[in-house]
């Protein structure tokens, strides 16, 4: 359907709306994940029960489909815009210093997005796929034991490093993406724009720090 959109404003709208939804999801996801920081016994039961609840709630299932759609649309739209961009650029300058006028991460949303996307694939494969379709042992309450799966994976240093890199990339992606999305859908008032800009920075920071704390906390706690 992206190929049918006839102009860049609508395409950017799609980018913005899917992006904003994904950002919203990041909050929910973070809230869930922060349970991993609870004392071990409590964390295990609560986290697994939480996962079980999400998997069984029809509303959540419905939203999860929206989420998958958003990921796909956001990605496909980005690829399409990338192609359009190449076409619009034509032959570029041999000596190119255009970058001095903007931030590096705003110019490299595509690269940051690719890192995040690659990470997502791994992330889905390691947790989502195994939780949904794989065999997992049950915990004391009879829920699938996702908790142990997560803890085990974060005991490996390389996995933590990979995770941190991806989250930092995501952080920069958000740093530009959140306020840019508001612009794309047409927030033009200067005051609200400065508010959004600050909120965007806070949001990116909170998400980045929030997600990074978890694997590092687990890794350090389980070094015996």
């Amino acid at each position: 359907m992206i190929w049918f959109i006839k102009n860049s404003v609508t395409r950017k709208n799609l980018m913005a709306l899917t992006g904003l939804f994904l950002s919203f999801f990041l909050i929910v996801h973070l809230a869930g994940n922060l349970q991993l920081l609870l004392p071990e016994v409590q964390a295990k039961l609560q986290y697994n029960a939480y996962s079980q609840f999400l998997g069984g709630n029809p509303l959540v299932i419905l939203i999860s489909f929206v989420l998958y759609a958003c990921i796909i649309l956001h990605t496909v739209d980005a690829i399409y815009l990338g192609i359009k961009r190449k076409k619009a650029n034509g032959v570029s300058c041999s000596k190119d210093k255009r970058g001095r006028a903007s931030t590096w991460y705003s110019r490299h949303m595509m690269a940051l997005g690719i890192i995040v996307f690659v990470f997502l694939v791994i992330h889905f494969k390691d947790y989502w796929y195994r939780y949904k379709f794989g065999e997992l042992p049950l915990d004391e309450n009879g829920n699938k034991d996702l908790y142990t799966l997560v803890i085990v994976s974060f005991e490996q240093l390389w996995y933590v490093i990979l995770y941190v890199i991806a989250i930092v990339a995501l952080g920069y992606h958000l740093l530009h993406g959140v306020f840019s999305a508001h612009r794309s859908i047409g927030l033009y008032h200067p005051v609200y724009n400065s508010i959004i800009k600050v909120l965007g920075i806070i949001f990116a920071l909170v998400i980045t720090i929030g997600y990074i704390i978890i694997p590092i906390f687990i890794y350090i706690n389980h070094q015996t």
């Binding site: 006839k6 102009n7 860049s8 404003v9 395409r11 950017k12 815009l81 359009k84 961009r85 076409k87 619009a88 650029n89 255009r98 970058g99 006028a101 903007s102 931030t103 705003s106 110019r107 949303m109 530009h176 306020f179 840019s180 612009r183 794309s184």
Partner: peptide, 21 residues
């Protein structure tokens, strides 16, 4: 907006470089 598209201009990704130059 439609004409911009027809003239082969790209999209805006809000890098804000344009205002600086």
């Amino acid at each position: 907006v439609d004409q911009m598209e027809q003239e082969n201009f790209g999209h805006c990704s809000n890098t804000e470089a344009c205002q600086v130059e």
